[in-house]
């Protein structure tokens, strides 16, 4: 299968390893991957801040860039939700509505793609560690990611998954919310860190690097012994 990668801006700039891991896993499974190098951002920061016109200006380019793609696989639950659910809303009633819908239908989040579309759960990964899983809200509620990442983790050799309490509650990142209301965002993050710490896991794993960025940043500042890792990185370990 020819797969077009979708690498969100902050993963490109801050967490390239996450993107690289996804590309490696897909290639290891025998797929041909390509990447539109001009891709930058899906427009979510503007959309979430109320700047829908600006978001549309960015999103239009994205639609054009992936127009000929057969299948688009992305490595972020949140940006994935943007390209599926929220593009439909963003382009509702505009000439590009049909195209946004067609685009949404081609988009997959990485774990969902592996498990639901390819029917693969064992990617041959090995990672001897205790991990706990944080359900990123957009992945969970907009894309229905719940069983898929867990099915993949279950097949990673040596890995033990310990569920944390309230795994489904928000970590407090929320995009621009994190900087507009840092006090609330931080409090939510603390609650999340506490749940994770109680499991004694070595790593918090998630499908969303943005949640992990927030959790890690908070844990580092508060000197909490927490490490985070994206699911793609876990799956790339051998």
């Amino acid at each position: 299968m020819k797969i077009s990668l979708f690498i969100p801006c902050f993963i490109d700039a801050c967490y390239p390893q996450v993107g690289i891991s996804m590309a490696q896993v897909l290639e290891r499974l025998g797929h041909q991957v390509e990447y539109p190098e001009d891709f930058t951002c899906c427009g979510q920061p503007a959309f979430n801040s109320g700047y829908w016109d600006e978001a549309r200006a960015v999103a239009e380019k994205v639609l054009a860039m992936y127009r000929s793609a057969e299948i688009i696989v992305g490595v972020s639950g949140s940006c994935g939700a943007m390209m599926t659910t929220f593009y439909k809303e963003l382009f509702h009633g505009t000439p590009l509505e049909a195209e946004a819908n067609a685009h949404a239908a081609k988009c997959w989040e990485f774990s969902d793609f592996l498990v639901t579309k390819l029917g693969v759960t064992d990617v041959g990964a090995k990672f001897p560690a205790k991990v706990t899983f944080h359900d990123g809200c957009h992945g969970l509620r907009e894309l229905g990611l719940k069983k898929q990442p867990r099915a993949l983790l279950a097949k990673v050799k040596g890995l033990e998954l310990i569920e944390m309490g309230a795994a489904e509650s928000c970590c407090g990142f929320g995009g621009t919310f994190a900087v507009k209301f840092p006090m609330i965002s931080t409090a939510m993050g603390e609650v999340k860190c506490d749940s994770a710490l109680k499991t004694n896991a070595d790593y918090i794993v998630s499908c969303d690097a943005s949640c992990l960025m927030h959790i890690q940043g908070l844990a580092d500042r508060q000197k909490k012994p927490l490490r985070t890792m994206h699911l793609a990185e876990v799956l790339a370990k051998q």
């Binding site: 801050c14 390239p16 993107g19 690289i20 190098e37 900087v179 931080t186 940043g217 580092d220 500042r221």
Partner: peptide
């Protein structure tokens, strides 16, 4: 400041994904 008042900022990578791809 809005971020770093309570959290560490993620470091930008020297080699981005785009670099990797090239």
């Amino acid at each position: 400041y809005a971020w770093t008042q309570s959290r560490e900022a993620p470091p930008l990578a020297l080699h981005t994904f785009k670099d990797y791809w090239r």
